[in-house]
Design a protein around this nucleic acid. Sequence first.
DNA 1: GCGGTAATTATACACTTGAATAATTAATAC
DNA 2: GTATTAATTATTCAAGTGTATAATTACCGC
Lengths: 210, 210
Amino acid sequence: MSEERRKFTREGAEQRKLALIQATLELVAEKGVRGATVRGIAERADVTQGLIRHYFSSKEELISAAYDHHMTQMSDLTFAPATMDPGSARDRLRVLVHSSLTPPVVDPRSIALWAGFLNKVQHDAGMKATHEKTYLDFRDRLERLIREALEEAGIAASPARLNQFATACNALIDGLWMEGGALPEAFAPGELSRIGLESVGAIIGLPLEP
Amino acid sequence: MSEERRKFTREGAEQRKLALIQATLELVAEKGVRGATVRGIAERADVTQGLIRHYFSSKEELISAAYDHHMTQMSDLTFAPATMDPGSARDRLRVLVHSSLTPPVVDPRSIALWAGFLNKVQHDAGMKATHEKTYLDFRDRLERLIREALEEAGIAASPARLNQFATACNALIDGLWMEGGALPEAFAPGELSRIGLESVGAIIGLPLEP
DNA sequence: GCGGTAATTATACACTTGAATAATTAATAC
DNA sequence: GTATTAATTATTCAAGTGTATAATTACCGC
């Protein structure tokens, strides 16, 4: 009964890295960064643990890479629809709010990832930078759209007021995103988006619903 | 140079438990549940690790107790001011929004605790129950205050609409609470509360600012 | 076919973890 | 004072952790 060595196939570096990153994200969502052990990640990606060190010089680096990947993907998912749309600013604002409040952006896994990474984000300078960049990006984009939509409608608003609108709308969207991810069954499809549109409209004084 | 045994004094059970719970909360906020090791907790509470097992049958139980303690305290801090106030519903709504968006409820540590506990909350039935109870409590309370304030002002709103208002305002408050805790230096004292009051007012169609 | 080499597996190591148990000792009653 | 006892410390244990290094082997060019 000789224990035979495990068979394997060689894969491209990028593909293997991606598999490791995806396995990492799964485990971070399930158990947090400390619960995502190198052995667990390797098993999830169907390789042995030594391979992780071959592609990433430490667990720390793998975690950072996974966080970057996740944030980029979320950002893309959120903004892609609003970029496509060539309509009015009001339409683009509508689309941004909608895509921020529907799957796949709204997803229990995203909440778990957000929570799982938070500690690392607060303590690791690199991850903190990634986080703030993503956050400010969204907020600036939101503020610009609000400004343009209001101008379009002939509504005047001071910079301070625009800033306040952006803060409030950003918070509203974050909060709805959290509620939707935390209690997925509590909302009918499209309900979250509808509430978001109506509330953003009320806050900035410009109805957004069709 | 004989290593001498550590001196100690006996304390009341409740006092020791509380010290252990507070040490646990500190460490969960700093490093998450898995990072809060029994040895770390014991050190923080200035006892040796064996004592934890004397008061809690497992780490799991200590974590649950700490979560309960934290949630109860947050709930008390949030509602105490609104309960004191004997004024109009509108005033009570004002006070609730304000106390939800000022220290000590708004605090970086609260965010870290929220994130640190999330995983456990999702997987442990008892903690999940505690969480949902606290969440629904706040939301119901908010909805009732909104309903009463609108009635007071002679504004009609269907149950569905009230429900939507409560969801939106709850999300707004959660989101502002998160922003305030995550970027404490980004907001002047009282700014968060002001934005919250103005936005809740806009959402429900009843100005709340003085 | 056949080396060569980098991708992959396997093994080892020092350290941490939660839990269990044994050994002490501070406070209390008498 | 002395006995009692429960609070507290000390020690032990098996399992799990990230990292380091050695041993294989699948694939590519020839």
